[in-house]
Design a protein around this nucleic acid. Structure first.
Lengths: 205, 205
DNA sequence: GTGACTTTTGTACAATTGTGTACAATGCCC
DNA sequence: GGGCATTGTACACAATTGTACAAAAGTCAC
């Protein structure tokens, strides 16, 4: 394993490889090649070989990669060979959809709580979770040692929520609010905004 | 305006700039600088100046950029100075959340229909829309000249749905299913998968 | 009204980062 | 043991980002 710093752009591609490999595994595929994987994810075979070889020699020349083995290695590298507890802030449409989404568990994540500040919503259910008062969020995060949160509140409240999350010890935030938030060094943020993705495509239409 | 081909990576940043500018405009800010905008979106001022200057000289030296003017120009460039009709395929949790989301209209998009193949769901409502039979989708898309669709069906059905969409004339697809889909040259796909975003962050935890 | 001062753009050029090409090395198959 | 497939990587090339500064445009003091 090459101990030098790995570029983030490579880290960003690993989940894509992992996702494709897991689908192959479901289909019963036991061995694949950089060529085959590349066709699935629309990335050049050379790129894939180079990315993977950053972390070790996981393939066999002439033979390709053992799918189960590569999945295992990628899960270790990405630290999803465990289950991370995640809290959701905001119980609107997005919060509800996230709370009910079944696709997290087998990919390394588990929603454990959902918070809102609306007295109308607190105590009601979202998926299998009782919506809790956001006033108790910091305490909950500290007590449970939560490191990951999703923000699903209106843009106007997102920065404030982010501050509280960071204050309580969260290190990774997935932000559904359509606004950039600022966080201290060492805290990671990823954004999901369908509109920015759509706008990126209309340029070409 | 520089007529040469603009790199996609620049196009990808424009919606981020636009989003931040629109928030400034809401706050009543009339003029900004590449420095200020850069701080908001966490991109260097030089990068922003260079990106924007690809399309024209929209700033004034010493003065910065007029916010309303730059918004107008970015909307033209991204072709969101109009409203695009969008269809949603899949009326599960994600489809419902998307159908009810209020954030599309003022950013260039309008959901016009939602389709599913489940007889239990067809005829019921999702947001303000009656869920339609996916069997009528191609006809609808052709009749209305729809160019943009969102896929919110299970991974196992995503490729088939994509094929139908492309066949009917769709040129831009936002895919919520956690799987890569392949489309012909000239059709654009963007992906939204919260898990890949989360996995990209756990590497650093 | 003029000139010195400040700010900030747009861009040339340099440096860095990322991708593609090509091939020696390896390992299976027959 | 020859043939074939495919990895891992050296090297070349391309794309992206950062640095630095001349040019422009406003402000202000007098």
């Amino acid at each position: 394993m090459n101990a030098e710093k790995i570029p983030d752009i490579i880290i960003g591609r690993l989940p894509i490889y992992l996702r494709a490999l897991q689908r192959m595994a479901e289909r019963g595929v036991q061995v694949t090649s950089s060529k085959e994987l590349g066709e699935q994810v629309d990335i050049s075979a050379a790129q894939i070989r180079k990315d993977i070889s950053q972390f070790g020699e996981f393939g066999k020349q002439g033979m390709g990669y053992n799918v189960a083995f590569l999945i295992e290695k990628l899960r270790e590298i990405l630290k999803v060979d465990r289950v991370w507890d995640v809290v959701v802030v905001g119980a609107g449409d997005i919060g509800h959809a996230v709370a009910r989404y079944q696709g997290f568990t087998d990919r390394g994540f588990r929603i454990v709580a959902i918070f809102d500040n609306d007295p109308e919503k607190i105590g009601k259910k979202a998926g299998n979770f009782v919506i809790q008062d956001v006033a108790h969020m910091g305490e909950y995060i500290r007590r449970e040692g939560i490191k990951i949160a999703m923000i699903a509140v209106p843009a106007s409240a997102a920065q404030e929520v982010a501050n509280e999350l960071v204050e309580a010890g969260v290190k990774a935030i997935l932000n559904y609010a359509p606004i950039n938030i600022s966080v201290p060094e060492g805290v990671h943020v990823q954004y999901i905004d369908p509109v920015t993705h759509l706008q990126r495509m209309t340029y070409y239409l």
